[in-house]
Design a protein around this nucleic acid. Structure first.
Length: 930
RNA sequence: GGGCGGUUAGCUCAGUUGGUUAGAGCGCCUGCCUUACAAGCAGGAUGUCGGGGGUUCGAGUCCCUCACUGCCCACCA
């Protein structure tokens, strides 16, 4: 074993090395399995970060959680596969490259589509892998040989097949609908990509003159209220509620649309709220989703008045009736300029009835934060209901489980109120829709292979659709596509059979709908026609993309504020890692990852776990030092016996049996906690075991046994050393999923280079086979409480730290033997020179009583009487409160009748003990000098 | 507007199906360089479990209600 470890743990000295080692040795590659080998799989996909992304705390939390589980599953004997990859991220990537072009004074339009796309690929080749590089540095145990990119040829094939198949099934349609349009990105975006912000605006009230039968102003008006006056150029009706008494006499009348001077009808619709505004709504089907719906119901024409950049652009023919409309004076104005001008003009004509302050929600583009403009345009949609039905069933029937469970409700609520999915984007970067438009018959050809001619009329005057698909369309297919779909053949289905459905998805709630829901819909839909290995049809339970979903929360800053660039409170994980070590940061995240609560990341906590890493490091130094000393005395530990669960025979000393029992208990707790995604419990159990049990007690006691001088008993020393090393080795394995770097380093050191595997990550995870030894844990507890009382008494009596003093103990005979047998432990840990067992404790010494024993330190006390009186008074108050509570229950007939026996007897015993302690405390108080 | 969470020590959070006097880490106070570790060791202080009501022999835990707070969905012009 290596003996010269530096005194303080320096993570930077070892982490790069191991991170590279794991990748270079390809340790976590999971090749395609051969024939069914009976081994169960644990499969998990990395939520693919944007190829443009940089690692943030959310990624690190996500990757830490997945890595802990994957390493744990791998070590527990399952075929563990974690597949990494990146997302081409249509809008984000295109914008990034466009910005780059802007600095060069050019644009994508100048470049042309083909050159631009090539340029993006070039960018991707240069910079695209950055985030995965960061991931490598963090030690993620992924299979790098399976790394994917959503625009890879194979994954693109899957996208194309999925599109064609849905089209053939009648589940994809194209049409002119109102969609959310981002004037900056100049593309349609889906409902999910719109975020609403409260905005202080105005409600303008505009008078629309009522026309008389001869088509002239009647002198009467209807006043409408709007937040977007500029859209009035496209109004094609005004709607009122049919029962609204104020307007009943106007049913069937027409209005003159101001500024444009077009006659528009008054329509009746129950959707209109009589309470809001004036109870009359201007209807602009081309620029508002509600108005669009109204327009459909009432067969109104739709008049687009804005172009893709949100500038006014009136199409003279838009009304469909060939009439030439007014309003061209606003042409070319940006929407807000037009708004100002229109309001001005209305006022000049006396048609502005009022302006009110009005706070309302305004939709913004999720990507670029520009105010979204609802806009009529021709887009591609997925008819979502059939897919949603399956996705609902999969969850309702329990084939997919959510943790925390409440997300099941959120998911179902969304899925049950789902709208058709707009999947086309007016971008250049992405999967181009495999549809061709015919210039002759104007029909559409959708095909798996690029067609040479129109499928309908045979013309070769066809051009491919320019739109690309929503990025989530391809990422939604990942669970099936990364394992070979749609090319699943008899010879080529091992991956799919072994790894699909995946076991688990770990992700943040922010992409529950974007990604999780889409994967469930698409996964269930497309995997269903891959037969099971035995040829039987695939049931829904085996069609799901994953069986478990673990949703984690947000990582916030130490003050619970959301991290954001504008606030300047973003913590760069790589920076923190450099400062404290990857293991300490991982442990921080794990220990704070309680399901359902956000993580307030506090580096104070990370400092604590850096200290923990240092503690482990120093425990190793201590152990290696003793191994060295033992070697000099001709004692060697048989490292070939390591690697399992340590055991201690009945003749082994107390501390050996105890630490083995504690290890088993800790292993049981950690396994159970990870089973339930309780990373926090698991981390705390290990922390408590390693620091609180192994270091604080076991190491201190075992020092007594590690005597390698000539006249010492070799057998006992060797046994002690063996237990020490084997428990430590097992603890490293237990800890390794949480702190992979430190444990890898020390584990290799334990074997002094003669390792039984290439990595601690490839060894077996500690399992608690037999039940832990409860008796030895109870015995140790008694010893610990005696030592703790003596330490406290020494403090109380102001015994100098270095002084050793005798103690007096009163206890039953059996325990007297027990204490005597372990006297050396008490003497060392409590600095005691001698144990005495008198019938009565000598008066005048500081003493304490517990339920099991009384103890006094033999020392002329320099006691602070006031402090001692205070302490005793507090103790008495505490005991009296306990007595009261116990007596209240024990004196209650209903309690005695109804409470279970173990509660009753437990309470009785406690009452008895409390009474005894209370009596002693009262005597002690009375005995204090004035 | 609809839905879902949260409120426990100075701070960040645990607290499994209601059961013996409520926990951890950090921070704080006191004393120690005890040869693995001062990134350490030992000892110590700290809570009307958001308010009110109810169910129960028994409530931090279940029910009702109020307050505060966070998030998601919807998007009435």
């Amino acid at each position: 074993m290596p003996q010269e470890l530096p005194k303080a743990y320096d993570p930077t000295a070892i982490e790069d090395h191991w991170a590279e080692y794991w990748v270079k040795e390809n340790l976590f590659a999971q090749p395609t399995p051969g024939e069914e080998d009976g081994q169960s799989s644990f499969t998990v996909l990395l939520p693919p970060p944007n190829v443009t992304g940089r690692l943030h705390m959310g990624h690190m939390l996500n990757q830490t959680e997945i890595d802990i589980l994957t390493r744990w599953q791998r070590m527990s004997g399952r075929r563990a596969l974690w597949v990494p990859g990146t997302d081409h991220a249509g809008i984000a990537t295109q914008m990034m490259v466009e910005r780059q072009l802007a600095t060069e004074g050019t644009t994508r339009q100048q470049l042309g589509r083909e050159a631009f796309v090539e340029r993006v690929w070039e960018w991707k080749r240069h910079y695209g892998g950055a985030i995965l590089g960061q991931m490598k540095r963090l030690g993620a145990s992924v299979d790098w040989s399976r790394e994917y990119f959503t625009m890879d040829e194979h994954l693109s094939d899957a996208v194309r097949e999925a599109f064609v198949r849905l089209y053939e099934q009648g589940l994809i349609y194209r049409g002119a609908y109102i969609v959310n349009w981002c004037p900056r990105c100049q593309t349609a975006i889906s409902d999910l990509e719109v975020v609403y912000d409260e905005h202080k605006g105005h409600l303008w009230e505009i008078r629309y003159p009522v026309l008389n039968d001869s088509g002239r102003d009647s002198g009467e008006f209807i006043t409408v209220a709007t937040t977007r006056p500029e859209t009035m150029l496209g109004d094609t009706a005004v709607a009122i509620h049919p029962e609204d008494e104020r307007y009943k006499h106007l049913h069937g009348k027409k209005l003159r649309l101001p500024l444009v001077n077009r006659a528009i009808p008054i329509i009746l619709d129950e959707w209109v709220s009589r309470e809001f505004g004036t109870g009359a709504v201007k209807v602009t089907p081309a620029h508002d989703p509600n108005d669009f719906a109204l327009g459909q119901r009432h067969n109104l024409p739709s008049i687009s008045v804005m172009d893709e950049t949100a500038h006014i652009r009136l199409d003279p023919a838009a009304g469909g009736d060939g009439a030439q409309y007014n309003g061209a004076q606003y042409n070319g104005l940006y929407r807000y300029e037009a708004r100002g001008k229109i309001v001005e003009d209305l006022e000049a004509q006396g048609l502005l009835a009022g302006i009110q302050d009005h706070t309302h929600n305004v939709g913004h583009c999720d990507r670029c934060k520009m105010v979204v403009e609802p806009r009529l345009s021709t887009q591609w949609f997925v008819k979502i209901q059939p897919l949603a039905d399956k996705a609902i069933a999969a969850v309702k029937e329990g084939h997919i489980r959510f943790t925390p469970e409440m997300y099941k409700k959120t998911y179902l609520n969304w899925m049950e109120n789902i709208y058709d999915w707009c999947i086309s984007r007016q971008l250049w970067w992405g999967h181009r829709i495999p549809a061709w438009h015919c210039a002759v018959c104007h029909k559409i050809t959708v095909a798996r292979e690029n067609p040479a001619a129109c499928a309908h009329c045979g013309s070769d005057k066809i051009t491919q659709e320019t739109d690309v698909l929503d990025t989530w369309f391809s990422s939604g297919l990942l669970p099936v596509s990364v394992f070979g779909w749609p090319n699943i053949t008899a010879e080529n289905r091992m991956d799919f059979d072994a790894f699909y459905p995946t076991s688990l998805l770990v992700t943040g709630f922010d992409i529950l709908f974007f990604w999780v829901a889409r994967m469930i819909m698409l996964g269930c839909w497309f995997s269903a026609d891959v037969a099971m290995p035995d040829g039987s049809p695939r049931p829904l339970a085996e069609s799901v993309p994953f069986r478990d979903v673990y949703i984690h929360a947000l990582v916030r800053d130490a003050n619970r504020e959301k991290m954001s660039k504008t606030k300047g409170n973003v913590l760069d994980p790589i920076e923190i890692v450099k400062q404290y070590g990857t293991d300490a940061v991982r442990f921080t995240l794990a220990s704070m990852a309680s399901p359902g609560t956000d993580i307030a990341f506090n580096v104070a906590r990370t400092e604590g776990y850096r200290a923990f890493a240092n503690k482990i490091w120093n425990a190793a130094r201590f152990i290696f030092m003793n191994v060295e000393k033992a070697a000099e005395a001709g004692i060697a530990v048989d490292t070939s016996a390591l690697g399992g669960m340590p055991a201690a025979d009945a003749y082994a000393p107390l501390e050996a049996r105890w630490i083995v029992a504690e290890l088993h208990a800790a292993a049981a707790k950690v396994n159970q906690s990870l089973e339930n995604y309780r990373f926090d419990d698991a981390a705390n159990s290990i922390y408590q075991f390693f620091w609180g049990s192994f270091c604080d007690w076991y190491l201190e006691i075992v020092k007594l046994r590690l005597d390698f001088s000539k006249d010492a008993g070799k057998t006992k020393s060797k046994a002690a050393l063996t237990t020490l090393v084997s428990v430590f080795e097992a603890a490293l394995r237990l800890l390794s999923p949480f702190m992979p770097f430190l444990t890898e380093e020390l584990w290799h050191a334990v074997y002094d280079g003669k390792v039984p595997a290439k990595s601690v990550a490839l060894t077996r995870y500690p399992q608690s086979g037999e039940s832990t030894d409860g008796a030895v844990i109870a015995a140790m507890e008694l010893l610990q409480s005696l030592i703790a009382e003596v330490r406290a008494l020494r403090k109380e009596a102001s015994v100098e730290e270095k002084a050793v003093v005798p103690i007096e103990i009163r206890i039953d005979m059996d325990s007297e033997d027990f204490f005597e047998a372990n006297a050396v432990i008490i003497e060392k840990l409590a600095r005691v020179s001698e144990l005495r067992f008198p019938d009565v404790l000598t008066e005048g010494f500081a003493k304490r009583a517990t339920a099991q024993f009384e103890v006094a330190v033999v020392y002329e006390r320099k006691i602070d009487v006031t402090a001692e009186r205070e302490r005793l008074k507090k103790e008495i108050a505490w005991l009296e409160k306990g007595m009261q509570a116990a007596n209240a229950k024990l004196g209650n007939k209903s309690f005695l009748e109804k409470a279970p026996a173990h509660i009753r007897t437990g309470l009785e015993r406690q009452a008895q003990e409390t009474g005894m302690l209370l009596a002693k405390a009262l005597v002690a108080l009375a005995a204090l000098p004035e």
